[in-house]
Amino acid sequence: ARAKAELLEEPALGGLCIVPPGWSALERVASARSLRIWRVGPGGDSWLESSSSGYTAMPWGEPIRLRARGRHFAEDALAALSVAVALGAGVREAVEAMSSFEGLAGRGRRLVSGPLTVIDESYNANPDSMRACLESLAREDGRRIAVLGDMLELGAGSGVMHEEVIRLASGLGLDLVVLVGAEFAAAAGRPGRGVVSVGSWEEALAVIEREAGREATVLVKGSHAMRLDMIVERLRGGA
């Protein structure tokens, strides 16, 4: 939070600072700079409401419809909408402009390879983004497979955080979880039913290719250095 607060040293006095609720360090700096504060999230100035039909941006009551799926994308869209409205754009106009947004390569792109629908989240990973993507995968129809690469540069708590991701993935009712890398291998110990631990993206690809004869949605996510993007590219080549 302190590092992010350094970004607020540049905006002109009287400018706008959009932050999640509860980020007191940012709010202190914003107040000292006489910036207007707009809180985005639960209990804030704008927030999401969810239902079986999707997400609604509040307080405006406008549904958020994106080609990219998942609450994490809806939350990002809410932040973008809040910026647009704060700068004077019309709510409906801004929502319509976002409706064509779809995930980018490595960040939520979806592609079809034979019977497999691949969700490409291979650019980066941390515990929060892993949770968001896994929970989104769990809401997909049909068979669901997660290919998860090590989350790098997490520091002393890395082992515990990898264990937490494994517990989450194992508890979501997914059909198969493929763990890639030494961090996940150490955290998994002896993997349980429906969980496979491998050492490289090549081994993970071989596991997925054995599933290629059956329809499934496959999430591919890990730190960029794990090279899980190669799995996506190989599958894409067979599309």
Rank of each mutant, 00 (worst) to 15 (best):
R92Y: 03
L172H: 03
A169L: 01
A57G: 07
W60N: 05
M58C: 14
S200W: 13
T217F: 11
S34A: 12
V91M: 10
I166S: 04
R92P: 01
N124P: 05
R109W: 06
W60I: 02
W60S: 05
G103S: 09
V85C: 09
G41H: 08
R210T: 03
L134K: 05
S24W: 08
W47A: 03
G199Y: 10
R234F: 11
V165R: 05
S51N: 15
H162D: 10
A216E: 02
L111Q: 07
L205V: 04
G173V: 12
R193Q: 03
P59T: 10
L148I: 09
G90I: 09
L7F: 09
G222Q: 09
G106K: 06
G149P: 04
A156T: 12
R144N: 01
L7E: 03
V195W: 07
N124H: 07
S100A: 14
V147E: 08
V220M: 03
V178H: 00
A132K: 10
R143W: 01
G90T: 13
D175G: 06
E183W: 12
E164V: 12
L174P: 04
C133K: 11
R28E: 12
R107Q: 02
G194M: 00
R110Y: 10
R110V: 12
D76R: 07
G192C: 10
S197W: 06
A74N: 03
G90W: 15
V95D: 04
G213M: 00
S53W: 05
T217G: 11
A94C: 07
K221H: 08
S129N: 05
E96H: 05
G88N: 01
S158K: 05
G199L: 06
S53Y: 06
D141N: 12
L152T: 14
R39F: 04
A187V: 01
G106A: 04
P21H: 11
G90Q: 14
S113L: 04
A225L: 15
E121N: 13
L134V: 01
T217L: 12
R71V: 08
G192Q: 05
A156P: 13
L66G: 13
D45K: 04
L13D: 14
V19D: 00
I231P: 09
A216T: 06
G114T: 03
V178R: 00
G238R: 13
R71N: 10
S113H: 01
M230L: 15
T117L: 14
G90L: 11
P20I: 08
G157E: 11
V147R: 10
W23C: 13
V118N: 11
L152I: 14
E9Q: 15
R71S: 07
V112K: 15
W38C: 10
L116I: 06
D141R: 15
A182D: 15
E10R: 13
A30T: 01
A186S: 15
A12F: 13
L235K: 09
